[in-house]
Design a protein around this nucleic acid. Structure first.
Lengths: 137, 137
DNA sequence: CTGTATCCTTAGGGATACTG
DNA sequence: CAGTATCCCTAAGGATACAG
């Protein structure tokens, strides 16, 4: 599903061909900010995605090399999902998304702990990036 | 269309309920980076969105206060669309999206002028934000 | 627990015609 | 030019049952 070949080589379009749906970013959010890593964790997120949709999106994310699926060493459950470096690189994007929503939506601001966490990461990131830039010049 | 009420108050979810489709961000891209402002400009973008979809997305973006539609003073054409402050605030998000895609997709890097522009904006933005942060402390 | 498979309904969207 | 409207098909997705 979602396999009608590439419409352009624009970077925004590239991102939209992976993340252009209601659910995919929510899985990344759960992996990145909520320390979720198992199928059922994702399934029981507040937004209640259907099991067939979840399975499909996990597969697409794996195909796009954004997550990896490995055998859970604890064997409490069978599989464990985690972000690849490519997936981790989405952090600045997600942070900016959270910042934007928190600024422009009142209800969203209610999730204070989550937003705070993102903002903390943001400052840390900005420092790191800025340091890298100054080092380069 | 796209009106099944809010599933959660999570900021990522808020963003996805506006931008969680293939097309909406492409319109914002055209407004923000390609100096497009008329219906036909959007319609003739490389990705070839259908006219009914475009009309629907423009309306949703207007309802969400991300763009405004005004009478074109030149009257070369009737309407002119532009970003509101809320829309302009999407810049860091879009920039991070471009940066991510350019890093992880080879084809995308081909659109060099566009990526360069985003990176330039990014550095400028980071400087501004950093200045604001240092000023605050 | 981690999924697949199926059924069914609705939403997305391409093509195209039409209106002010 | 700036859209609306319609037709029609496909994809998305909710519910639920089932399998390893």
């Amino acid at each position: 599903m979602r396999k009608t070949g590439r419409k352009s080589d624009c970077p925004i379009n590239y991102a939209m061909e992976i993340f252009g749906d209601r659910w995919t970013f929510l899985i990344v959010r759960d992996l990145m900010f909520k320390n979720k890593s198992h199928y059922n964790d994702f399934l029981h997120a507040e937004e209640k995605m259907a099991t067939n949709i979840l399975a499909n999106r996990l597969q697409l994310l794996e195909e796009n090399n954004i997550i990896i699926k490995e055998i859970d060493p604890t064997h409490g459950s069978k599989w464990i999902y985690s972000l690849t470096p490519k997936g981790i690189d989405l952090l600045p994007l997600l942070v900016e998304m959270i910042v934007w929503s928190a600024k422009h939506d009142k209800k969203t601001a209610a999730d204070k702990a989550f937003v705070k966490k993102a903002l903390t990461n943001r400052e840390k990131l900005l420092q790191e990036i800025n340091a890298a830039l100054t080092a380069k010049n």
